[in-house]
């Protein structure tokens, strides 16, 4: 019985955590010719601490960070290409192109 309660508690916790924020950051990473790039995108807060795990772009160069807290962030595209931005309430789209 105790295990069932723990499972329910964990499930509710996961559900609540995933619905806390609606702010999403998403977009496309492309090269200078506009072609999609397969790379890693890392999100850091304003102090430089990583937010969640880095994500890999898909075939179309798309990346997405879901349910994040609105505020200032630094997006690292690839190894060290850093861009500052502010993620507002709701959906925020930012496309990046590599130099």
């Amino acid at each position: 019985m105790g295990k069932i309660f723990i499972a329910i508690f964990v499930m509710v916790g996961i559900f609540t955590a995933s619905t806390l924020y609606a702010a999403n950051l998403f977009g496309i990473v492309s090269d200078k010719n506009g072609k999609p790039v397969a790379t890693k995108v890392t999100l850091k807060d304003a102090k430089g601490a990583p937010v969640g795990d880095p994500v890999a772009t898909d075939k179309k160069g798309s990346y997405a960070f879901k349910d994040i807290k609105p505020g200032s962030y630094v997006v690292v595209v690839g190894a060290k290409d850093e861009r500052k931005l502010f993620v507002g309430p709701g959906e925020t789209r930012r496309d990046f192109s590599l130099k």
Partner: peptide
């Protein structure tokens, strides 16, 4: 005013 470093359209 908070401006993105980035501009769109694959150029700087």
């Amino acid at each position: 005013v908070l401006q993105d470093d980035n501009t769109s359209n694959g150029n700087y």
